[in-house]
Simulated assay, not measured.
Amino acid sequence: MDGIAARLAFVDARLAYEIDVVAASRAVAAGSAVLVDTRRQESWDHGHIAGALHLPASALATGLDDLPRDRTLIVYGWGPGCNGATTTARILLAAGLDTRELLGGYEYWVRNGFPTESGGAVTRQAPDPLVTAEA
């Protein structure tokens, strides 16, 4: 495979695997996907995407059977600098589960003004104009 073909294949693979927060929000609203938080308990307690399931690395061995198999699982971590979601995604994919990774993780979900939950309360932060599209 020449250089351009190899890079094109890599980009195609990324587009098939990664999903941005806007597309993820739409997929969850349509009922075709569920969000899965891969962060540790303290991070989940601090705040998580409203409606997400919690599957930290410490629960992977016992939590796979509890995941829905009729929807795409969209895994996320803290943000672009965290690869915990990538590690979990690999395990889920190897187990035969339809899995994608959320670009930007929790950070970009919050920055886009999508709903989060903490202490049982669902809130939304004002969207960051640097990451949201102009109307």
Rank of each mutant, 00 (worst) to 15 (best):
S43Y: 03
S43G: 06
W44K: 05
W44A: 08
W44I: 11
W44D: 13
D45Q: 11
D45M: 08
D45T: 12
H48A: 09
H48K: 03
H48Y: 05
A50T: 14
A50I: 13
A50W: 04
A50N: 12
A50V: 14
A52G: 09
A52W: 09
L53Y: 07
H54A: 12
H54F: 04
H54G: 11
L55D: 00
L55K: 00
L55F: 05
P56E: 02
P56A: 04
P56F: 01
A57D: 14
S58F: 01
S58R: 10
S58Q: 12
L60V: 10
L60I: 13
A61V: 14
A61W: 06
A61E: 15
A61L: 14
A61T: 13
A61H: 13
G63S: 12
G63Q: 10
G63M: 10
L64C: 09
L64G: 04
D65G: 08
D65A: 15
D66V: 14
P68T: 14
R69Q: 14
D70A: 02
D70G: 04
D70Y: 08
R71K: 15
R71L: 11
T72H: 12
T72D: 11
L73W: 14
I74E: 07
I74T: 03
I74N: 05
V75G: 10
Y76L: 05
W78E: 05
W78Q: 04
G79C: 02
G79H: 00
G79T: 05
P80L: 04
C82K: 00
N83Y: 08
N83C: 04
A85W: 02
T87A: 13
T87Y: 11
T88C: 14
A89P: 01
R90T: 11
I91H: 06
L92D: 07
L92C: 08
L92R: 01
L93I: 13
L93N: 07
L93K: 03
L93H: 06
A94G: 06
A94C: 03
A95G: 12
G96T: 09
L97N: 03
L97S: 02
L97W: 14
L97T: 06
D98G: 00
D98V: 07
D98P: 02
T99L: 09
T99W: 09
T99F: 06
R100N: 10
L102Q: 01
L102T: 02
L102Y: 00
L103T: 07
L103A: 04
G105P: 08
Y106L: 15
Y106T: 11
Y106K: 07
Y106S: 09
E107Y: 00
E107S: 05
E107L: 07
E107P: 00
Y108L: 15
W109M: 05
V110C: 02
V110Q: 04
R111I: 04
R111S: 08
R111H: 06
N112Y: 09
N112H: 15
G113Y: 01
G113P: 02
F114W: 08
P115Q: 10
T116V: 15
S118P: 00
S118C: 11
G119P: 10
G119H: 03
G120C: 05
G120Y: 00
